[in-house]
């Protein structure tokens, strides 16, 4: 799986949406992406990329697009 595929899969599996919808997602944009869903997303990303996100980054991860930029800080290109 490429990084892009892993990244999309974290969103689709956590929020049970399709890939196209995943790419438009924002925090609280769907019922599943609430605070509990956010915790699940963080765990999915940490497992997929074997990283531990800083607390500030956990807070900043407010959309699919924002997440790409955050992962770049961990030298992960999506």
């Amino acid at each position: 799986m490429t990084n892009e595929e892993k990244y999309i899969h974290a969103f689709t599996s956590t929020f049970e949406v399709g890939a196209d919808e995943a790419k438009t997602l924002q925090f609280q944009g769907v019922p599943a992406w609430d605070s509990v869903g956010h915790v699940s997303l963080i765990a999915a990303l940490e497992e997929a990329f074997d990283i531990a996100l800083d607390p500030d980054d956990i807070l900043d991860l407010s959309s699919f697009e924002k997440g790409r930029k955050i992962l770049a800080k961990y030298n992960i290109t999506v």
Binding site: S35, V36, H38, V39, I42, A43, A52, L53, P55, I58, L59
Partner: peptide, 12 residues
Amino acid sequence: NQANWIYYLLIC
């Protein structure tokens, strides 16, 4: 341990 979950949920 995932203490960061707790931290995040407390912030919320």
